[in-house]
Amino acid sequence: MSNISRKFKDMTDTGLLLTITIVVFFLMYIGAIVFQGKGFLKPQTFFNILNANAALIILACGMSIVMITGGIDISVGGVTALVSMSCAVYLDYKGGNVAASMLIAIGIGLAYGLVQGFLVAYLDIQPFIVSLAGMFFARGMTTIVNTNPFNVQNESFVALKDTRIIVPGMGSVNKLGKYVNAYVEIGVIVALIIVILMFCLLRWTKLGRSFYAVGGNKQSALMLGINVKRTKFMSHMLCSLLAGIGGYVYFLHVGSGAATHAQGAEMNAIASSIIGGTMLTGGVGNIIGTFFGVLSLSTIQNIVSSAGLDQAWWTGITIAAMLCIFLVIQSVVMARKKRAVKK
């Protein structure tokens, strides 16, 4: 018993919350298999969750980085919509090519990061306000770029969008007795690469550790010789860049431009990060946790919809409930841990 409590005390905050997240995800997935039937046993069900949420994973990675540094960025959904629309218009109306459209996405992300990062880091304006304005600007700009939603017809783009990457050995036999290969979309590969890259960045680079230090205690970080302003700036830069990339992955998944795209994506990204064990107060969090956060969030959405509660409002309510529960868990666990350390 005392051994366990000692371990509990010694665990880093990040490790503790990460453990909670992973345990919760597996319990939930097992629960889904038990109560919702075999559908959840099929690997393709899991891959479909990945396919549908590749963009969200990327957005949530960026969000986690900003949150670890002690900030927040609610413009990512807006940026996603803006990227989709800009690229769609470029590809179809201006006859652009796919490679250049990717550059546009990255360019929009970088521009956002530059402006928001500067305002937050160097002018010391609250990140929430800056990114709230950023979100509205992006949404507004999207309709200015083009008002009506439309599907992209550009051939090479459509080909790219429909590319399926077969996952060997994971297929299943369908009702007609035919073997169907399991597949993922390109976006999933991009998302996984980004998860790995960001994990390494946070774990093994000076910049990554600076994010934690600044989020843990800004004043101390300054005294420890970290360039706090630059670190904050970089966190926003990275988040917006990932929003640009995530936006393109989203675009690749839906294949259209619309002002209503990725509505509420910022909320999902924040919720995923929080469920994944990123503390709002900064300094604590992990990309692997965030990855599982996204999976947990979408698994529960799947459970809700396969339970027959298909009305749109249930999704909103479940996400909010999850968010609420995890926020309270965080608040309670950290308070208890603090008390344990004191004694």
């Binding site: 905050d13 550790r209 205690n217 604590v284």
Partner: peptide, 20 residues
Amino acid sequence: CPNLSVAENMYIGRSDDIYQ
């Protein structure tokens, strides 16, 4: 920084290396 490990607190912000 209370959220970092003891070792990190001793070494962070000191080197110009990119990797930790």
